[in-house]
């Protein structure tokens, strides 16, 4: 079956999944009346609409075929998104001076052209100093320079 591999099918699946989640989570909100619409009115209409659009997209994927979904590259996604998660998880413990360059290197590894080299390490250090100077010192973003692990 070609249909399962089309972009339209999977986009439709994403819409249906989002719409259904919104519907299920929003079930409890009261609908109200036309004069006094409740908090559930819009969520109900919108989630229904999104499911409908999703179903049309799925049907289109089966009926008219269309392009197949290109390969999803797992490695860059894991490393780049992982780097943001790593930064979020460790900033309080390690502090920006350590979490930031670590996240930088981790994100950089998503690129096939990147090699850990003295130049890269130096660059990461310089960029970290720049960020600390601009954001923490200059703009007063309350981000610990050294985290709880180092008594900061």
């Amino acid at each position: 079956m070609q249909g399962y591999r089309t972009k339209d099918f999977w986009a439709g699946a994403v819409y249906v999944a989002l719409g259904l989640t919104a519907f299920l989570l929003g079930k409890g909100y009261s609908l109200g009346s036309a004069a006094r619409m409740g908090p559930g009115y819009f969520p109900m209409v919108l989630s229904g609409l999104l499911v409908l659009i999703g179903l049309i997209s799925i049907a289109r994927g089966f009926l008219s075929g269309g392009e197949a979904v290109p390969r999803i590259h797992i490695r860059p996604a894991v490393l780049v998104i992982g780097a943001t998660f790593f930064f979020a998880a460790t900033i309080e413990l390690l502090g920006a001076a350590i979490a930031l360059p670590a996240a930088l290197i981790m994100a950089a590894m998503a690129s096939r052209l990147f090699r850990i080299s003295p130049f890269a390490m130096l660059g990461a250090a310089a960029f970290t100093i720049f960020c600390l100077a601009v954001f923490v010192k200059g703009l007063g973003v309350p981000m610990p320079m050294f985290g709880a692990l180092f008594g900061g």
């Binding site: 930031l100 930088l104 290197i105 994100a107």
Partner: peptide, 19 residues
């Protein structure tokens, strides 16, 4: 080179949304 630029963008984004 993009492989030097993009980690910096990621870091800027992370610090920016933290703030």
């Amino acid at each position: 080179p993009y492989h030097y630029l993009f980690p910096c963008i990621v870091a800027f984004c992370a610090i920016g949304v933290f703030s």
